[in-house]
């Protein structure tokens, strides 16, 4: 058996060893991607606001809380639920 094959074989425990390393890698990468996607959404939102402002629209002081990225993706829901809450 070549050295590489032996390494991959892990003394018969390949499924367990590589399985756990694989799952961990997947979880860590998924976390990283989620954080990056969030950052992109925020930057896109800010760029949109900057364009709006440049076009002469008033960018008001939207409710800072609860709105933001999530509200931008679902226009309208933020305002409705804000009213329905209390």
């Amino acid at each position: 058996m070549s050295a590489l094959a032996e390494f991959l074989h892990m003394g018969g425990y390949a499924a367990f060893v590589w399985g756990s390393y694989g799952i961990c890698a997947a979880v860590l990468i998924a976390n990283l991607l989620a954080v990056r996607a969030r950052g992109r959404r925020v930057r896109a939102m800010l760029a949109r606001r900057a364009r709006f402002e440049a076009a002469g629209y008033a960018v008001g002081d939207e409710p800072a809380a609860g709105g933001g990225v999530d509200a931008v993706n679902h226009p309208g829901t933020g305002a409705v639920s804000e009213v329905g809450r209390r």
């Binding site: 954080v35 990056r36 950052g39």
Partner: peptide
């Protein structure tokens, strides 16, 4: 750090 940066931008957007 990554998350804090984007959250700060979002919270302080004005």
């Amino acid at each position: 750090l990554m998350r804090a940066r984007s959250d700060l931008l979002e919270r302080e957007r004005n």
